[in-house]
Structures are given as C-alpha cells and as structure tokens.
C-alpha cells in the first residue's frame, strides 16, 4: 500500500517555480530519502506534503488524504521534525513532551505510554526536569523526534534532521529511524549527506524543483552513470598515470593516493587495453578491477550533465 502518492505537484511563488510537476510514490514503512542541494525544492515539497503550503497545481495523497482539500486530516496523521529541533528551550524535558502530547490531544493513558517511550529513546529517563536548552545536540535531536511522533503518526517527515550533529549521534539517530520504519511508520527524510542516502530504501534526487533521478541505491548507482570505473593498483603510480594518458585510455584518469581511477564508457571493456599498455613498461601491476561508483560519482555526474544541456 502506498503511504504517499504525489501527482504533478507544482508550487510557484510569483514567477519563480520552486517545485515543478513532481510525481512519486512512497510505500508504507519505507525510509524514503529526498536528496538535493539547498534550494532544490526539497523543503517546499515537504511543506506541501505536510499540509502547511497549498500547491499551485497538482495534488498529493498523504495517508489517504488530499493535501489540497484536507490539509487538517493530513496534519493529524503525520509527524514533522525540522533541522531546528523545534523544542522549547526554556521548558523542561517533561514539559515539552506534555505540551506536544496536549497539542495532539492524547488521552492520558496513551500519553503516559508515549511519554515513557519518548524519554527512553532520548535516553532521558530520570532527567525529566532538565531544562531542554541545556541538553547536548544529539539528545535534543532524539527528544525532538520523540515529540514529533508522540501521537504515533503513520508518516513522519524529517527535514535535514542530522545537520549540525556529531557522527556518533547521527548513527544513533539513524538506528532510531530504522526502529520507526520497523514499526511500520513511513519515514521521509531530506539530507545532503550522501552516505546517509545509503540507509534509505528509496530515493529521489531533486534539482531546480524537478526530480532528476529516482530508485534505490543500487538502481541509482547503475542506471544513471553509464560508465565503468576501473581501479588500478600499481607502482610507481606517477609513471603509470603518464603512460595511461599518453595512450588516451578512457574518458578520465585520476589519481587517488596510490591507486588510479580510470572512468570509461560502459560499452568498452578497457581492462585489457590497460593491461597491454602497462605490460610493455617497467611497471609492477598489482591489480585492475571494476569498482562500484559511489553516489557522489553519480550525483556529480547527473548535476553536471544537466547543467551542460
């Protein structure tokens, strides 16, 4: 079943089109990643999906409700957390939880259960009376997530939830996101950390308000970069580089420490050419192998080729 179905969603601010005719679907219990640079239209899309910004045209069904016609029903079924960790810094941990519980109108039995849960995931049991502003960033972030889903929504939107948090806290946070997904909550997350994209079941890459790539990590890496990357381990590397360049092998040759990357069109198998070119020379060739492109490779390639056209 689809948790979210977006059809031709468009948002214009005056003459500027922030989101242009975007369509995609998100399955229930999926971790769905939104990638793209600042200003790519990620946040505007999320705001429309949360029902706080009315689309200029198109529509989206979120948890079965139209963001255009039933924004209030949409809001009731989603949770939202922004990169600002929107908690009240001058309230205590427990007052923050109580406030959001109250705002969502939780009845007391459910509330107590959810409060316990929120304290647990943030690691704040026994510290309910701490002023929220005094908490370290990572803990605040988890508390913010706890309060954002205090009402057990079907879907939660996380807008750059891990910016400004140290790597260990980031890892813990992703464990938490996984835990939510296992409880059948759909998680939509925007990020510009590409290594975080690897944690997502499905991804879209946005640029200038349009989706320019979509799929899971494997599909993105294989369907969008029509090139093969060869990694050559050899000695001496500098001499190897010169020889390869003289022979015009591949499209691009770069040195990475003591290895060399050759990027070549997929259709040509250049492994043999490389071996042949190097065999006649005084070079110790340890290995030549095809490697997986990283998401960085793919996205840089996609954004650059889009700009060229």
């Amino acid at each position: 079943m689809d948790s979210i179905e977006v059809n031709n969603l468009t948002k214009k601010f005056g003459g500027f089109t922030a989101v242009n005719n975007v369509s995609f679907k998100v399955k229930r219990g999926e971790i769905f990643g939104f990638l793209g640079a600042n200003g790519a239209g990620k946040t505007t899309t999320i705001k429309m999906l949360c029902g706080i910004l009315t689309p200029s045209s198109g529509d989206a069904l979120v948890a079965g409700f139209s963001v255009k016609d039933q924004p209030d029903m949409v809001k009731r079924n989603i949770g939202y957390m922004s990169q600002k960790f929107s908690l009240y810094n001058d309230l205590t941990v427990s007052e923050n939880i109580e406030f959001f519980g109250g705002v969502y109108g939780l009845e007391s039995k459910l509330f107590l259960e959810r409060k316990k849960w929120a304290l647990e995931i943030a690691g704040l049991r026994g510290k309910e009376k701490t002023i929220t502003g005094d908490l370290p960033g990572g803990i605040k972030q988890r508390l913010a997530l706890g309060t954002a889903v205090i009402h057990k929504p079907q879907i939660v939107f996380l807008d750059e939830p891990t910016s400004g948090v140290d790597p260990i806290a980031r890892r813990q946070f992703w464990e938490l996101i996984n835990q939510l997904a296992q409880e059948d909550i759909t998680v939509i997350v925007t990020t510009h950390y590409l290594e975080e994209a690897e944690y997502c079941n499905s991804l879209i890459l946005m640029d200038s308000g349009e989706i320019i790539a979509r799929g899971n990590v494997f599909e993105l890496k294989n369907n969008y970069l029509n090139k093969t990357i060869y990694e050559i381990e050899c000695e001496p590397t500098l001499l190897t580089l010169e020889i390869l360049e003289e022979n015009n092998i591949g499209d691009e040759i770069t040195m990475y420490g003591n290895t060399i990357h050759v990027i070549a069109p997929k259709k040509d198998d250049v492994e043999l050419t490389i071996r042949n070119a190097l065999s006649s020379q005084n070079i110790l060739l340890k290995s030549v192998k095809k490697i997986q492109p990283t998401l960085d490779d793919v996205f840089v390639h996609l954004l650059e080729s889009k700009n060229e056209t």
Partner: peptide, 14 residues
Amino acid sequence: EHGTEEQLRVSSLN
C-alpha cells in the same frame, strides 16, 4: 525565531 511556529503549524492545532 525558534522554528517552533512551524512545528505548531504542522501539528493539528488550528
């Protein structure tokens, strides 16, 4: 300023 307004708008509070 603190971004809590956005949080409140997303909540079901009218």
